[in-house]
Amino acid sequence: MELVSVNDLTKTYSKHAVVDHVSFDLQPGKCVALLGPNGAGKTTTLRMLAGFIQPTSGSISFNEDTLSKDFRKFVGYLPQYPSFYPWMSGEEFLHYAGQLAGLTKKEASDRSNELLQLVHLTESGKKRIGKYSGGMKQRLGIAQALIHEPKLIMLDEPVSSLDPIGRREVLNLIRELKKDATVLFSTHILNDAEEVSEEILLMNDGKLIEQGPISEIRGMQQTVTIRLAFEKEPKFIHEKLKEIDSVYQVTEENGTFDVSVHDLNAARDTIFSRVQEEGWELSLFEITSGTLEDIFMKAVNK
């Protein structure tokens, strides 16, 4: 049973469709990455799912929610640039957010302490947010999104403004989060998506152009590129590679060959048997295609 189903979701601003007939389901306990270039409609999609902008048409339904239309209580949301009340302390803000979400005073304060610990802000909990660094604000932003134990956690570009250490921390945190909830996060950094998520949704120009488990999407690729380099370049190697069945293109750059093939297994077997037969001094064999980067570039440029 899916947690959320999104059907034909559309949002138009002055006749321009920012999100254009997008449909997908989110399964519980999965981590899903929403990918796409800037301006693809990721943030608008997340905001509609967070329940505070209304779709022009289409529907969002939570299986939890059969009665009320307000599903914000199931959702924790972190905007791309979270901003707080600078005069509050981190602890006070969590407390406030918790009570807004319907927790009692006691629950809110227990949960605040728990979350401050989770995001390593216990020591700065009593400090005014005005004095926090960018990374601390981001972590406080995650904590406030989790305060009411939402079923769906949505993070809008959670790592793009962070330094490598902060980025690592947040990715580890996401890995923790998906134990208890569904995580949907948008990013344009493909490595991050690959690292923590099982599924991707790929958006461009308001449309959903690719969706599914990463492995499946990789498998759908029609062509694969094998990257080869040699310690000592064999003679006529360029021609020899080209003669192999199912190879349709060979390009060379600084002694590295990119061999595009239709059938990976056949090409790989042939290359390895040649390596043995002809004694090619192979120094690099890498299957480069099928990374998200390729899928992304291809889908976006389609």
Binding site: A50, G51, F52, D70, R72, K73, V75, G76, Y77, P79, Y81, P82, S83, F84, Y85, A97, L100, A101, G102, G141, Q144, A145, H148
Partner: peptide, 13 residues
């Protein structure tokens, strides 16, 4: 303007 409204609004307010 500051953006904190977005955080508040994401809660069932």
């Amino acid at each position: 303007k500051s953006g904190v409204y977005e955080l508040i609004l994401a809660k069932p307010v």
